[in-house]
Amino acid sequence: MTVRSILSGIALAFTAYLSARSLLWTLPETVERGWLLIAALVIYLPITWLWVLLPTRHHEAATGGASADTRAAPPRWALALAVLAAVLVPNAAFAAVNDAGRAQPFVTWVIGGIGALMTVVMVRRRPAIAWIGTGLLSLSAAVWLGPLSALSLGLVGSLVWVAAAQLITFALDRVARDAEQLSELQQAASAWQASQSGRQRERRLHVQRALHVAGPVLGRTIETGGNLRPSEKSAARLAEQSLRDELRSPRLLDDGVRAQIDAARRRGTIVMLFDEGGLEDLPASALSDIRTELARVVRDAASERLIIRTSPHHEVAVTVVGRTATAGAGADEDDVDLWREIRRPS
């Protein structure tokens, strides 16, 4: 059983109690048109119970492209019925009796009854209709009973109910907005924490890989006091280049790319990697395809120098340029013998 069903049951019971008083004619001699009292009851109960049990329709109002608030939207015919009840029910009850009977409970129940109906309308987020109906009730009661008598016979209570309902719904809406904002902040904090945890794991992996690559070389350097054999110096240079790759372009690297770059350097090829952005928004599957193709390009390359750059272009993910020195030319003069663009996966 939900809170809404409990509140709906209380509202049904309370409005039934108010309307049942119309059947207790304590002064039957004052009743001149009894059918009007019955008609007021017949009009009031279905409309009030309709508002209590009315299913909630929702509509979304987009604001700035973001998801928006959803509010209960009763149909227009229900709004018209509420206003109609506020006009007909009080006037029918007061017109059914003479002056002596208008202050009797079986007549003045309409003040509390319409007040309860307008309270339900207010809770349904229709304040304009609720206050229009309350104003019509107040006008009818003041005309038939006089302003002071109307206030003393329950009009004050109806006004207080409607005003309290408006304050409560306003407070609940504000609490809901604050709760939504808090939820968004919690989600942002969780995303930030997950991002930081991912970066920490990535840094740990980089440190572990650096220790795996450079640890033996550093240990041997310390052990020999820097007097390394030519093969050990070559291994140290390869380790230094591998560490530079890890710092400059971690998004380009996986085990396959590392292996092919290491093999190319052992063949004497100078390989330089530059991460200039553009791969941050790619999913893991797309990165895997790009790395697989990059490893294949590096494996098949015969250039003396390979320059590998990421690209922020919307179609090209990675550009591989191979250069080879021209025979008989200067040291700084070489030809482009390889140009390969690795496309972004569609």
Rank of each mutant, 00 (worst) to 15 (best):
147 P>A: 07
221 T>Q: 00
118 M>Q: 15
58 H>G: 10
277 G>N: 03
335 D>K: 03
247 L>R: 12
201 R>M: 08
322 G>V: 05
40 A>D: 11
286 A>H: 15
155 L>P: 08
51 W>G: 11
319 T>Q: 08
143 V>P: 08
32 E>A: 07
200 Q>W: 06
69 D>T: 12
265 R>V: 01
118 M>D: 13
328 G>Q: 12
299 R>M: 03
112 G>T: 05
218 L>P: 00
233 K>F: 05
41 L>E: 07
185 L>T: 01
339 W>H: 07
66 A>R: 09
341 E>R: 14
4 R>V: 10
2 T>S: 15
89 V>H: 08
83 V>D: 13
197 S>F: 02
133 G>F: 05
329 A>Q: 07
55 P>L: 13
145 L>S: 03
9 G>V: 06
49 W>S: 11
86 A>S: 15
218 L>W: 04
247 L>V: 12
24 L>H: 14
287 L>S: 00
59 H>W: 09
28 P>Y: 13
296 R>N: 10
286 A>G: 10
42 V>T: 10
201 R>Q: 13
135 G>Y: 03
139 L>N: 06
148 L>A: 07
215 G>T: 00
330 G>H: 03
286 A>N: 11
159 L>A: 06
7 L>Y: 02
9 G>K: 01
196 Q>T: 00
87 V>H: 06
236 A>S: 12
309 R>V: 12
307 I>L: 14
50 L>N: 14
181 Q>T: 01
335 D>Y: 07
286 A>E: 14
214 A>L: 13
272 M>A: 12
183 S>V: 02
201 R>T: 09
10 I>C: 06
9 G>Q: 02
312 P>W: 10
54 L>F: 07
119 T>D: 04
92 A>I: 01
218 L>V: 13
52 V>T: 06
34 G>H: 13
101 G>N: 10
248 R>E: 14
7 L>A: 07
227 N>E: 15
41 L>R: 13
321 V>T: 09
291 R>Q: 06
11 A>W: 06
115 G>R: 05
125 R>N: 15
241 Q>R: 03
176 A>K: 04
216 P>T: 03
124 R>C: 13
306 L>H: 00
42 V>A: 14
12 L>P: 02
37 L>P: 10
218 L>A: 11
120 V>D: 08
345 P>A: 09
122 M>Q: 14
148 L>N: 05
221 T>A: 05
92 A>P: 00
135 G>C: 05
6 I>G: 09
50 L>H: 13
36 L>F: 14
169 T>E: 02
258 R>L: 10
214 A>I: 06
131 W>G: 03
306 L>N: 00
289 D>L: 08
40 A>E: 12
331 A>D: 08
159 L>N: 05
341 E>V: 07
16 A>F: 05
110 V>E: 12
72 A>S: 15
131 W>D: 03
223 E>A: 01
54 L>R: 02
266 R>Q: 14
237 R>A: 06
278 G>K: 01
154 G>F: 00
31 V>N: 05
120 V>N: 09
43 I>V: 15
